[in-house]
Design a protein around this nucleic acid. Structure first.
Lengths: 192, 192
DNA sequence: GTCGTTTCTTAACAATTGTCAACGTCCTAT
DNA sequence: ATAGGACGTTGACAATTGTTAAGAAACGAC
């Protein structure tokens, strides 16, 4: 019942009923991704922009040394795509894995382009989402570049306490830029 | 002579002469920022999107411990803003400093909004810029989260060798997430 | 040019994080 | 219920980076 999508969009722009209806139709119907499954296969193209209605998605990539590194989490109310792969139809370097069963909507490039062309307001919305994404990741990079792991963990505890309940700690560790053993050490220190 | 701006825009969308003229007028005339000066004062609002025609701009912010941390560099042909401050008219947490004399153009939110409203193509362009920014910073965060400083330096040498010639090493070090002394060590190892 | 300042390098030592190995716990399939 | 596997914790040691201090080199103002 795409109320979350509609309200997310309406927070940023004023939809009128006609545009609203189109947006909903273009996103299609709600899909389900079982726990641990990927949104699309490894070495596939990210053909959609996704909107998460429920659940948590883990973003990861394979480092040159072969490790799978968790670099972000997205949850209900957020949009999600690999812009590089989506816009240029190239192979995606990222994987998106459900940490819990995920309910989501998706829209492909051709449908989205039509929406953008028909409804300038929706393109404005697309721009705002990209701008906010850029802003969010800038803050993340800022944290990684100058803060210690212990401080990043402390801040995660305050700002997204739910994440620690819903995601295995090994993924949290990678997200913080450290190994699971280091996170254990930090947690130990922090509890004394 | 805004040829760089025009060609940058035309790489992504097809401008027609009318739109082109408007884009140029809205960006106003070329301005100069002397070496070491800031684009806007500390604790000011980032009221413009900037386009760099020539020179290098250093992005930095003040960490909680009071250090000024270099987090990015922008150079000729690139757009530049603090999206958070620009779109919401809030105080900017970032500073933009000229590493060399910089020639640039700028456009404020009200003029840009009018452009977006009048020319959907230009809003498309704005969206593309934001998407590419998001992509670029995502890669930067990826590097910071899982690569060692020595490897990041090695890669910078290959991918942006000019940067090392044009920017003091202490800023390069911060950009790599390490202290100047550590960069010296890495350079020493690397030269043997 | 010289002087004074800033930047870069080097070295010793400290703090942080990584690596490896062992162990306990939890979860799940059977 | 039990066995196997994944996950989290701990400890010893290694590698990396930070901190401090000192000196060398580069740069600007005069």
């Amino acid at each position: 019942m795409k109320t979350l999508l509609i309200s997310s969009i309406n927070k940023q722009i004023q939809l009128n009923p006609q545009e609203e209806a189109d947006a909903i139709l273009a996103f299609g119907q709600t899909l389900t991704l079982p726990k641990d499954q990927l949104l699309y296969p490894i070495n596939g193209v990210c053909k959609y922009i996704y909107f998460i209605e429920k659940g948590i998605i883990r973003h990861s990539y394979n480092s040159e040394s072969g490790e799978n590194i968790t670099c972000d989490f997205s949850m209900e109310g957020q949009f999600l795509t690999d812009y590089g792969s989506f816009t240029k139809n190239e192979l995606s370097l990222y994987q998106f894995q459900a940490m819990e069963e995920v309910l989501y909507l998706k829209i492909n490039l051709s449908d989205l382009s039509k929406l953008y062309a028909s409804y300038p307001k929706i393109e404005t919305f697309g721009r705002l989402i990209a701008e906010q994404t850029a802003q969010r990741i800038t803050q993340m990079a800022r944290s990684l570049i100058s803060e210690k792991a212990a401080y990043r963990y402390e801040r995660l505890l305050k700002e997204r306490p739910d994440l620690l309940q819903r995601v295995p700690q090994k993924y949290i560790a990678a997200y913080l830029g450290i190994k699971p053993e280091s996170l254990s050490r930090i947690r130990k220190t922090y509890s004394n």
